[in-house]
């Protein structure tokens, strides 16, 4: 101030400096808040800049599948050894298992984003990646609605690939249509992921939603465990109209199970369905609903 006066700076000049500073501050604040609004948060509440990200490592098969479905497959530089769908994903560098991915391998791929699943990806892996400054975007995908959300988020994070909008819209309208057309009259059924011993899908799984949308009353809805272990006797006592079995189990075991069931409860229909549709909540979750509807004759 003292010097200003000595130099003889006028009042106007000082005012203009003040205004200029204020303006700068305002602009800074505006851009900051603008950026704030653009930030994307993951299932843990962690904020991310929207990207677009170009080198993504996926630590969950369903997220890999979603990335490919929205046309962002070319952004994926690393996947787990379980990421086999679509076949193109199998040609990408492997970073190990889902629970224990090889952290060094991930770093070596120098990704700008790692996507992980809340209930699947090993927690210590996520924590280690975080501590190394390689942030994990954690998704919690456990329903068709969440698949849609994940599609939208991933499309945003990859800078809206050209196909994404169409794919997402089609998924949204299909989901809406399936919700509206859910049959009022339900059949009673359950889905088994294994037959020796029978292990079914309970109410806390995304399969429960698939069954509901297909018009199947899940007889295992009230089970405490997500995937309860049952006995053949228990299965019979539930008197299911339908038992869905995921394909891929030993043929002999399935045949034996069929025989037991047919002897004990003649009215039950046992239908084998594609295992891939019922083990990962991804873009084909609606296909799973459609397959079940076709089986029980409700389109």
């Amino acid at each position: 101030m003292e010097r200003d006066r000595k130099k003889g700076r006028g009042k106007g000049e000082r005012t203009s400096i003040l205004i200029f500073t204020l303006l700068l501050l305002l602009i800074a604040a505006a851009t900051a808040s603008g950026r704030e609004a653009e930030r994307v948060t993951d299932a843990r509440g962690k904020a991310f800049s929207p990207g677009p990200y170009r080198r993504i490592v996926s630590l969950a098969p369903n997220l890999t599948e979603i990335l490919f479905s929205i046309g962002a497959g070319d952004r994926v530089v690393g996947v787990t050894s379980f990421c086999t769908i679509p076949p193109d994903a199998g040609r990408i560098a492997r970073v190990g298992g889902i629970v224990d991915p090889d952290i060094e391998k991930i770093i070596a791929l120098s990704p700008d984003l790692v996507v992980a699943s809340k209930n699947g990806t090993g927690k210590s892996a996520v924590e280690t990646l975080d501590s190394l400054g390689l942030s994990c975007f954690v998704f919690d995908v456990d329903s068709a609605g969440k698949v849609l959300e994940a599609m939208e988020t991933l499309s945003l994070l990859t800078g809206m690939p050209p196909e994404a909008g169409k794919v997402i819209e089609s998924f949204r309208s299909r989901l809406l249509r399936l919700r509206k057309s859910t049959p009022r009259e339900k059949v009673k059924g359950l889905l088994l992921l294994s037959v020796t011993p029978p292990i079914g899908a309970g109410g806390k799984t995304f399969i429960d939603e698939v069954l509901a949308l297909a018009g199947v009353d899940n007889l295992l809805k009230e089970e405490t465990a997500a995937y309860p272990r049952l006995s053949a006797e228990k299965v019979v006592s539930l008197r299911p109209d339908y038992i869905f079995i995921t394909r891929g189990m030993g043929e002999r075991e399935v045949a034996r199970f069929r025989k037991t069931m047919e002897a004990l409860s003649g009215n039950t229909r046992i239908v084998e369905v594609d295992a891939d549709l019922f083990t990962r909540p991804g873009p084909r979750v609606l296909k799973a609903v459609e397959v079940l509807r076709k089986v029980i004759g409700r389109r």
Binding site: I98, V99, N119, G122, T224, A225
Partner: peptide
């Protein structure tokens, strides 16, 4: 049996 399904492999590991 009560562990959240996604956590079972991690627990076994």
């Amino acid at each position: 049996a009560l562990t959240p399904p996604g956590k079972v492999p991690e627990a076994l590991f």
